[in-house]
Structure formats: C-alpha cells, structure tokens
C-alpha cells in the first residue's frame, strides 16, 4: 500500500515539469534493474545449468577477477581502444562530413564511396586491416575507426547543410579569425549533430572493439571472452561483459549527459 502510494506520487511529480521527465529518476532505474536481476536469479534457480549461472556466482567471479587485477587490466585496455578509435572516428568523420556538406560537387563525387564504406561489414574491415597492417594496435584501432567514420560523415554532412549562412556572414563582416569561427560559429551549430554522432558512436564502437580483440589482440575484454568461451566459463563471460557495460553506463551518465547539458544551457533559459 505504502509502496503503491509512493509510486503514484512519484509518477505525478515526474509528469509535472517537462524538464524533470527527461532525466529518469534514479529510483526508477534501481527498481528496473532489481526486477531484471530477480528474473535472472529465478531463471537460474528454475533451470540449474552450467551455461546459465545466477547473479551471485557471476558477482563472485567478478570479485575474484577484480582482486587478481585481471579484470581491471583487460577493462582498461578495451577502454583505451574505445577512446582512441572514438576520438579518431569523430575527428576524421567530422572533418570529412563538414567538407562534403560545404561543397556540393565534392559530395556528389564522393557519395558513392561513402555508400560503399557504409555497407562494408565490420568483420571484413577488421580482417583486411590485420592482413594489410599486421596484428598490431594501430591496425586494431584503425579498423574500428574506419567502421564508424562513414556514420559520422553522414551525420556531420547533414549538420553542415543545416548551418545558417547568416552567422558566417556576420563573422565575415566582423573579421572573425579561423579559430573563433570554429569555436563560436561552427561548433555550436553542429553541437546537436556531434552529440548524436557521439552517442551512436560509443555504442557501436565498443561492440566492434570486442571483435577486434577477439580476432587479433592478446588482451582486452574481447580476448578474455574468447578465452572463457573455450573454457566454457559462462560466469566469467558475463562478469566481464557486465562490468564493461557498467563502465559505459557510468561514462554516459557522468560524462556525456552533464557535458550535453552544459553545452545546451543557452536553449533552456528561453524567455
């Protein structure tokens, strides 16, 4: 009864201001995860099997791997690869996207290339990168970036087409320098597109990084998952995968969202 009334109370409060409804309440998130954990536990108890360990054994494996230092090390390696290929893909993709968005001729010429790259499977790029450049870090990170770059190009090209030329003219009249134009004219207008590209980017990149690690690296979460697959250690597979998902969620909550809020604060304070 008490829970039900608290629940309805929260729902009413959540609905009132439009601003708050965007941020999912932490209690709702906790409750949602609790239900998922319970369902998992229930399934594991009902059908006991080595291939479906319950939450508790997975958590114990997580603690053991963390204590031995293996999990933080492999997590760190994967995280660094995600970060490196993310930065690489965003910078290269944005530059090419802004270029194609600004020059229609170039866009017409390069568009078929873009469609080609958009449709090459990630696996093919990874395998070719390893064959051509060897089983090394550069090939791994490069292959992940190449998989993401076409998506960034498409998004940033749209953003560039939507630029308001009047701001560029104002900047020309007042003789803004190249750096000021980038910081105060171009980037603020592209911000929603950059945010969209980064969001879908992080989600895509970390999944591809695992494949790259599985195929040609000797560390990282992907390598470990392959190892535990051969040992048929499902608890360890889940422990590594969930630990990394948790890290990505924290990055989203503690880094991406606050950054987005601060860069769009001028929108919210409309008169």
């Amino acid at each position: 009864m008490g829970l039900a009334s608290a629940e309805s109370d929260r729902m009413q409060r959540g609905r009132a201001p439009a601003d708050r409804s965007k941020l999912t309440s932490p209690i709702m998130i906790a409750l949602s995860f609790a239900v998922l954990l319970a369902a998992w536990h229930f399934a594991a108890v009902t059908w006991p099997s080595r291939s479906l360990p319950g939450p508790l054994p997975v958590f114990q494996t997580f603690l053991r791997e963390t204590a031995s230092g293996d999990l933080p090390y492999h997590l760190g390696m994967t995280l660094w690869r995600v970060a490196a290929s993310f930065v690489l893909a965003m910078v290269i993709g944005s530059v090419i996207g802004v270029f194609l968005g600004s020059f229609r001729r170039a866009d017409q010429f390069f568009n078929p290339w873009l469609i080609l790259f958009l449709n090459i499977p990630a696996l093919v790029v990874i395998v070719l990168a390893y064959i051509w450049f060897g089983l090394n870090e550069v090939a791994a990170i490069g292959a992940v970036a190449v998989n993401k770059i076409p998506n960034v190009i498409v998004t940033m090209r749209e953003g560039t087409r939507a630029l308001d030329p009047r701001y560029a003219e104002m900047a020309a009249v007042y003789r803004f320098g190249p750096l000021d134009r980038l910081r105060h004219i171009l980037l603020p207008q592209l911000q929603p597109y950059i945010a969209a590209a980064s969001r879908s980017g992080i989600a895509l990149i970390w999944k591809i990084v695992l494949v790259v690690e599985l195929l040609g690296r000797s560390n990282g979460v992907g390598f470990e998952i392959n190892l535990f697959f051969q040992l048929f250690d499902v608890a360890a597979i889940l422990a590594y995968a969930l630990a990394f998902v948790a890290v990505m969620l924290f990055i989203e909550l503690l880094l991406v969202q606050p950054l987005e809020r601060s860069s769009t604060r001028w929108r919210r304070r409309a008169a």
Partner: peptide, 15 residues
C-alpha cells in the same frame, strides 16, 4: 573596419 547592424540582430544565441 565595418560595424554592421543587420535587419535581424544576428547575435549568436549560444553566447
């Protein structure tokens, strides 16, 4: 050095 006032104010909304 040209000071221009356009028909619309053309202030940067993010500054």
């Amino acid at each position: 050095r040209m000071g221009a006032v356009f028909q619309e104010p053309l202030l940067l909304p993010w500054r």
